[in-house]
Nucleic acid binder design. Structure first.
Lengths: 196, 196, 196, 196
DNA sequence: ACCAACGGGACTGCCCGTTATT
DNA sequence: AATAACGGGCAGTCCCGTTGGT
C-alpha cells in the first residue's frame, strides 16, 4: 500500500518536470546544477532522484515531453500554429528545446538514447506534409521532404533567436514569408506595393 | 629582444584559436575542458593561458572572430553565399556559432561582454539589406528589417539542423524557397508542376 | 493484543539476519547498502529498521550470533570441528566473520561495543584448552594460552584464504599439520617417507 | 623540460604511498576518504590525483608494493623471517595487507586487476618451497603445495590477529609450533615435559 | 508492521587557474 | 615562454535514516 496514489505521484512528477524545465532553460544543461534543481523544485536530492534516477534521465524525460507536445500541436493544428507557439513561447520553454539539439551534437550517449525514442510521431508528421502537398496546399516543384525540413528549420531559427533574446519578425509577416516560400502552385503572388 | 617576433606570436595565437574551434564545436563550452584544449592545441596549460587569460576569454575571442567572418561574407558576397557557407560548413564550425547563442541565453556576463562588441558590422548589414530592397531585389510589402531578420533566422535554422546531424534541404531548393519568400515584387512565380 | 506473536517476530528477525549475512559477506560492510539489504530480505527500509534501529546494530547482532555459534561448536565438538566448519563454510559465511575483525581494527565505536559483549564464552574456551593439555592431548612445553591462540590464528587464516577464493590445503592434511604442531608429548612422530 | 627530475617524482610518489599506507590501514579502504588522504599526505586533491588517477589505483599500487616486499623477503630470508616480519609489523602495515584480501572478496573489478599482476614472484615462491622439501627441510608425507599454503595461511592468521589488536603467541613459540607442523622427516620430536 | 517518499550529508573525481621550475 | 605539479572548489550521485501515511 503506497504512501500516495498513482495520480498524486504523476502530479508530483510533472511538478518536478515543470520546475526543471525553467532551470534547464535558464542555465543550460550543465548550468542547471542539482542544487538549483533542488531550489526550483522545492525538493531535496532524495526527492528528485526518487522520480528520476539521474539528472540526465530527468532531462531526457523533459525533452521527450516537449517533442511530443510539438508533434501533437502540428498534427492537430498545422504548422502555422507550431510556428506561432514557438514564437509566443516563453524564453524558458525554448531553452530546453535548444538544449536537446545541443546535446545531440555534443553528447554521444544522449544521441543514442534519443534515437531509441518512438519515431511514430515523426512518421505521422511526414505523412501529414505529404497530404498537404497532394491537396495543393504546398508547391509541387520541390520535394515534399524538403518542404518539411524547411519548416522545421524555420522553427528552429525562430526558437534560437527568441531564446537568445533577439527580436524576431512580427509573426504575421513571418507567416506571409513562409507561406510564399512553400505555398501552392496556383497561387500567383503579384503583391501590391505597400503604401508605407 | 623578444624570443619570437610579434607575428610569430600572432600565428601561435591563431593556431590555438583554430584548435579550440574544433574542441568547442565538438564538445560544447562546458565539455571543452582545458585538458581537451591542451590535447587539441598540443600545448600545455601554461601555453594556452599565456595567450588567453581564461577559457572564457578564449571562447569570446573565437566568437568574435566568427561573427566578423560571417559579417564580412555577407557584405562582400550577399546573403546567398552566407547561407551556402553555413550549409557547407563543417559540423565543427557550427558548434561554436551555436554556442554563442547559447551562452547569450544562459550566461549573463557573456551577454554583457558580447554587447560591447563592435556593432559596426550589424549597422552595415542592415544598410545593405535596405539597399537591396530599394533596388527591387526584395519584396517591399514587408518591412526591410523583417526581411533581414528572416534571413538571419533561416541561417540559424540551417546551422542548428546541420550541427545536430539532421539532413537539411538540398541547397538549391533552399535558395529557391528563400528567394520566393523574400523576392522582389515583380517576380511572378508561376511555377510549373514538376513531372515527378 | 499484538498482531503477531513474539515468536513470529523472532522468526522474522532471524530471517533478516540470515539475508543480511549473505549481503554483508558478499559486499563487505560498506558495500552492503541498505538498498541491497532490502533486496536480500525482501523487506523495505521500514521493515528492516523496525527490527534493528541501525545498519550498524544489525551488523553487530550478526557478529554476536556468529561468535556464539563458533564458541558453542568448539565447546561441544572440539577445535577440529571448528576448523572443519570454517573450512567447509560457504564463502558467504566467512565474509561476516572477517568483517568483524576488520571493524575491530578500523572502527573505534565498534571496538567498544564488541568489548562489552559477554566474555563468558571466551573464558570457557580457555578453560577447555587447559583441560586438553592436562589430559595430555596437547604438548606441554608451550604455554596453553599460546596453543589456544595458535589455533585461533589458524582458523582465521583458513577463513581469510577461503573467503578470498584462494585454494586451501586439503582438510585432512591440515589437521595433520596442526596436530603435529600442538600434539601431546608422547606422540613420537616418525613419519614414513611417502612414495610419491 | 619537466618541473622536477624523475627521481624527485619517485620520491614524492613514495611519500604519498607511505602516507596512504597509514590511512588505509587505520580506516580501511572506504574509511580512507580522499579528505583523509589529503591530510595524511599533506597534499591536496590535485596533488594526489596527479600521481594516481584514482583512489583505487593508489590502493592497488600500495597492494602491489606490499606483495612484492613480502615475496622478496621470503625469497631472500625464508619463511621464518616473513612470519617474524608480519608478527613485528606495525598495526598500520597490516591493515593494507588485509584490505587486499577483503577487496579480493568483495570487489570483482579489483579481483580482475589483481589477477593481472605479475605472477612471477608466486612462481618463484612455489619453487623455493619445493627446493626446501627436496633438501629435507620439510616433511615429505604431505604435498609441498599444501605446506606452502599452510604457511601462507598462518601468516594471514597472524596478520589478522595482530591487526585486530588481539594478543598473538610469543614469536619463538610460534616458530616452534610451525616448525613441528612442517618440519623434516628425520626430526623425531620427543619433547621433554617442561618444568612449569 | 510495513511502506514509499524524502531530507540532507558526504564521497569521489573533475575542472579551472596558479605557482614553482627550467 | 612553456611545463608539470598543485590547490581548492564543486558537481552528481549514493547512502542512511526519518517521516508521513495506510
Amino acid at each position: 500500500m503506497p504512501k500516495t496514489t498513482a495520480e498524486a505521484k504523476e502530479v508530483r512528477r510533472d511538478a518536478i518536470l515543470e520546475a526543471a524545465q525553467r532551470t534547464f532553460a535558464q542555465y543550460g544543461y550543465e548550468g542547471a546544477t542539482v542544487a538549483r534543481l533542488e531550489q526550483a523544485t522545492g525538493l531535496s536530492r532524495g526527492g528528485i532522484f526518487n522520480y528520476f534516477p539521474t539528472k540526465d534521465d530527468l532531462f531526457l524525460a523533459l525533452a521527450e515531453r516537449d517533442a511530443e507536445r510539438i508533434g501533437a500541436l502540428w498534427l492537430e493544428h498545422g504548422y502555422e500554429d507550431v510556428l506561432r507557439y514557438i514564437d509566443e513561447s516563453e524564453h524558458e520553454w525554448l531553452g530546453v528545446y535548444l538544449e536537446i539539439g545541443r546535446r545531440l551534437r555534443t553528447d554521444e550517449d544522449f544521441r543514442e538514447r534519443w534515437r531509441q525514442r518512438a519515431p511514430e510521431v515523426d512518421r505521422r508528421l511526414a505523412e501529414d506534409v505529404r497530404r498537404l502537398q497532394e491537396e495543393g496546399e504546398l508547391r509541387d516543384d520541390v520535394d515534399v521532404e524538403t518542404l518539411g525540413r524547411f519548416l522545421g528549420l524555420v522553427a528552429d531559427g525562430i526558437a534560437m533567436n527568441r531564446a537568445a533574446g533577439f527580436p524576431t519578425p512580427p509573426f504575421e509577416d513571418l507567416l506571409l514569408l513562409v507561406g510564399d516560400a512553400i505555398g501552392g502552385p496556383a497561387r500567383l503572388r503579384t503583391r501590391p506595393r505597400r503604401s508605407a
